[in-house]
Design a protein around this nucleic acid. Sequence first.
DNA 1: TGTAGGTATGAATCCGACT
DNA 2: AAGTCGGATTCATACCTAC
Lengths: 255, 255
Amino acid sequence: MSRYRFERAEALAFLQSLDDASVDAVITDAPYSSGGATRGDRMSNTTLKYVHTGTILERPEFAGDNRDQRAFGYWCALWLSEALRVARAGSPICVFADWRQVPTVTDAIQAGGWVWRGIVPWDKGPAARPSMGRFSSRCEYVVWGTSGASLDLESVGCLQGLVHCHQTTDDKHHMVGKPTPVMQHLVKICPPAGIVLDPFAGSATTGVAALLEGRRFVGCELTEAYYGIGLDRLEACAQGVSLEAYRAGQRPLFG
Amino acid sequence: MSRYRFERAEALAFLQSLDDASVDAVITDAPYSSGGATRGDRMSNTTLKYVHTGTILERPEFAGDNRDQRAFGYWCALWLSEALRVARAGSPICVFADWRQVPTVTDAIQAGGWVWRGIVPWDKGPAARPSMGRFSSRCEYVVWGTSGASLDLESVGCLQGLVHCHQTTDDKHHMVGKPTPVMQHLVKICPPAGIVLDPFAGSATTGVAALLEGRRFVGCELTEAYYGIGLDRLEACAQGVSLEAYRAGQRPLFG
DNA sequence: TGTAGGTATGAATCCGACT
DNA sequence: AAGTCGGATTCATACCTAC
């Protein structure tokens, strides 16, 4: 039996298709809808917004990154509340946010019925986005909580509330993808052999991390290109081979 | 002329006594009113609230740490709005918060008329308060912003948006005091030779850091015991001697 | 002065017992 | 019942003591 299940689907619809209390942790990186101050900025070509000037990395656009602040909060509360139903009582949840979205996400997570338990900064290192006369934005944040007040996490040790890891292009399969070591750290909050859910899986880094740490994975991704990359990465990981080796194996050797 | 001014006063009253546009930065650590889910926990003896059970740390209590969430936000907006008047246009502001108060402080800073510009985590190191099955609370947070939209910070270089510093016993003069190196880093956001304001000065670590970094200082503290400690530290720093040496000099050698 | 080993500590949180 | 109280728990590091 496969240790993962990955589908091409819209997040809310996918969540609705899952049974009550059928997963042990939710770990995800929902589209931030951050960046531009004006609606025009947010609606503009999303592909270019995230790439460093001068280096055009060809990555597919991704959907759902153009909501305003209020709509973003409302939409988060919607899927978070559906995720609560799907999660076993006592399950932990981790949601990424940049500094601008932290208050909205902490509100939304609570509006969705989860108990907010803290913030885990992800430190991207000193190189990240220096700018004159201000504090650099070198951190992103993981807002975390649990389903219900009582913790069911005795099986899990004490985890550090800060992750250091700078992003290498090597490990970057999605435009705003998170490094695998960061996800491996977060995944440890899920009880061993438990099921990790990621309804915004992208290139499935959460899933790869879950498999590497001995957890199982359930997730979905809407954008076709990312879904394809994610599927390859998951299968390569499940077979214990590199992505390149796996893909080479998929191609007919003698065309 | 003295490079600092430190008074025993209540914060809001002190702020009201200051002239418009008379300081160049606001850097402060207001009482969090956090820690404790119930009103009783928050209202309980502050001396015991923050220390390990069974060990009594001999430090004076401090005032104003018992507001509920809503009152805390309202009160912050009040003094923040008064601080905005006192700050020159373009001045930066830094306010400490623990994870629980971050959203309230980001709201309050904006309600007070400031432009919110980011979050700077202070990492206390891996030793901080572990507990089973959770991410440790090893960070506190500095919410920062500016007076008005246009930054007037060209005189200041690029500052790191994360501070690592473990609290040492030597450098801890207040029950919840911040390490001097942390404050030295923050104080650099103030233009050189500018005036740093701290209306919740406690043992005046902000002031000491300001002097060490070549800035001037204006502040107040309500609790008498901390006011006394702060005054000694500032004067010792201004004279370029250690706190112990300064205090020894104050005592008559032959009683 | 240096190293090794024991102890104390932390802006905490949980849970059962009690009012 | 909902709210409150108090004891027990967690571990990496700093600090202290002994050699």
